[in-house]
Design a protein around this nucleic acid. Structure first.
Lengths: 234, 234
DNA sequence: TAAAATATGACAAATTCATGACAATGATTT
DNA sequence: AAATCATTGTCATGAATTTGTCATATTTTA
C-alpha cells in the first residue's frame, strides 16, 4: 500500500510539479487547489501526509493547518508546510500550529523527498521503502523479498504486508482490529478471527528459517512481533 | 548512445565550461547561444536534459522554459535552470514554470554533475546507456542488440525498451502502472493488463537462451527482473 | 474442570495471472 | 496502390494462487 499524499496548493504549476515529484517518488498524489476543496476530499480518504501551502486563497494554509490539528479525525495526519520565504517567523508559527516540518520555496525535489520520507518514517514506517532486518530476518520492500538467514521466504501478498507492518512496528502489541485497519485497510469488512489465520500462515512460512517465534500471541490483546523471546523478561 | 544534454547559455566562457564538464561526466553536449537557436536544434534531436540559463538575450530563459513545458513534444524533457547566486525570486519562478532543479552560479562541477545525474536517473535511469550484462544476458543500448549467451535475441521495440528498463532497474519490483509510466511513457492510456502480454512476449523471446526466468512475477505487486532465482536468496 | 481464547485444517469463493487469438495500425515491399 | 509483414493493444478463457470463513482441536486461565 503506497502512501497517499495530499497536495494543497493554489498555484497550478507548482501543484503539478509537486504531484509529479511525489509520483516519481512512488507515492500516490491527491490534489487540491484550496483548503475548502481539500476538506471535501478528506471525507473520502484520509491521506497519510499533507503538503500544505502557506499562502492559500480563502482559508489560509496556517489557518487550515490549525483546523486539521484540532479535529480528532485528522489530528494525527502529518503536515509539511510550504513557505515562500525563509522567514523565521513563519517557521515558528507553522510549527506552533502543529506542522511537522516545513519546506521553503524554492525547494529541490531531493530535499522535498527527503523530508517526506522522514515524516512518513516517523508516522507510518511501513509506508517507506527502507529495508528492515531483525534477528536475521530481512524484508526489503523495493525488491519485495523476505529472507531468513539468507534463505528466501516466499510469502503471499497479505502475509508480506502483515510482516512488513509487524517489522516496522516491532515490540508493540497490535489488536486484531488495528491489524485489520493497518494491513487490510480502513474500509474493509473482514472478521477479526481472520487475522488468526493469516498469523498462522505467516508463522508457517517463517518456519523455513525458524523465525516463527518472532510472532508472539498476547492473549486477550492481539499479536506482537518481538526479537525478545516471550519466555524471559527483558 | 549516451544522454544528450543541451546547454543554452549565451556567455561563451560559461558555455564552454559547462560543455567541458558535461563531456567529462560522459554525456554528450549540445550547445546553443540562444533560445531561438536551441529551438532549431530541437527539431533534429530531442535532448534528454536541458541546462538553461536564466538570463538570455532575446527570449529569456524563464520564458523559454515555459514554452518548452507547454509543448507536448518537449514537455517531458527535464530542465535544470542556471540562476544567478542567491536570487530567491528567480528560483521560485523557475520552479513555477516547471524546471526540475536549479543550480546557482557559480556552481561547483561536482554539484552540477550530481544534479544532472539525479535528474536523469529520476527521469529515465535506463538512459545511461552503458551496455548491461546480467547472468549471461547482454543488452547494448547503442547497437540496440540483445544477446543471451552470445546468441542473438531479436526483440520488438516495446520488448526492447521493457527489457532495457528491467535490466537498468534489476531486483526491484515494478507495478504495472509504473512500467507503463516508465516504458510506455507518462501520458499514454493503456490497459494495465497489456503489460502482462508484453511480459509474455519478452519471456517468449528470452526462451531462446533460457533466460525467461529472469523475469519474475510478484503476485499482487507486479514484475521483477532478478538474477536471483525466486527460490533461494543469494 | 469449565469457560474463554487461540490454533489449525479444510474448503469454496474471489482474485490474479498466463496464454492464445484477433483486429487495428503502420511500415515495407511488390 | 495493393499486398505483406511486424507490431501493438485488447479481450476471453482457463489455470493457479490467494483469501475469508467455518468447524474443530488445543491451550490457557480462573
Amino acid at each position: 500500500m503506497t502512501a497517499n499524499i495530499l497536495v494543497v496548493e493554489d498555484e497550478p504549476a507548482i501543484q503539478e510539479l509537486l504531484a509529479l515529484n511525489i509520483k516519481q517518488a512512488g507515492y500516490n498524489a491527491l490534489r487540491s487547489l484550496s483548503a475548502e476543496h481539500a476538506q471535501q476530499l478528506l471525507r473520502e480518504t484520509l491521506p497519510d501526509l499533507i503538503l500544505l501551502d502557506w499562502m492559500l486563497p480563502g482559508m489560509s494554509g496556517i489557518e487550515y493547518a490549525r483546523r486539521l490539528k484540532s479535529d480528532n479525525l485528522t489530528k494525527s495526519i502529518p503536515i509539511i508546510m510550504l513557505t515562500a520565504r525563509g522567514d523565521e517567523y513563519d517557521k515558528v508559527r507553522g510549527l506552533e500550529v502543529g506542522a511537522d516540518d516545513y519546506v521553503t520555496k524554492p525547494f529541490s525535489p531531493r530535499e522535498l523527498n527527503a523530508r517526506i520520507k522522514a515524516v512518513l518514517r516517523r508516522r507510518a514506517p511501513q509506508m517507506t521503502d527502507d529495508p528492515i532486518e531483525i534477528s536475521g530476518l530481512s524484508l526489503d520492500p523495493t525488491t519485495h523479498r523476505v529472507t531468513g538467514n539468507n534463505v528466501n521466504i516466499p510469502l503471499g501478498p497479505t502475509e508480506f504486508r502483515l510482516l512488513h507492518f509487524f517489522m516496522s512496528n516491532a515490540e508493540r502489541v497490535h489488536s486484531r482490529t488495528q491489524l485489520l485497519d493497518k494491513v487490510w485497510g480502513d474500509r474493509v469488512f473482514v472478521e477479526d478471527r481472520t487475522v488468526d489465520v493469516h498469523i498462522r500462515r505467516l508463522r508457517n512460512a517463517l518456519m523455513a528459517s525458524n523465525h516463527q517465534d518472532l510472532i508472539q500471541t498476547v492473549r486477550g490483546s492481539g499479536y506482537r512481533f518481538s526479537a525478545q523471546s516471550s519466555e524471559q523478561a527483558g
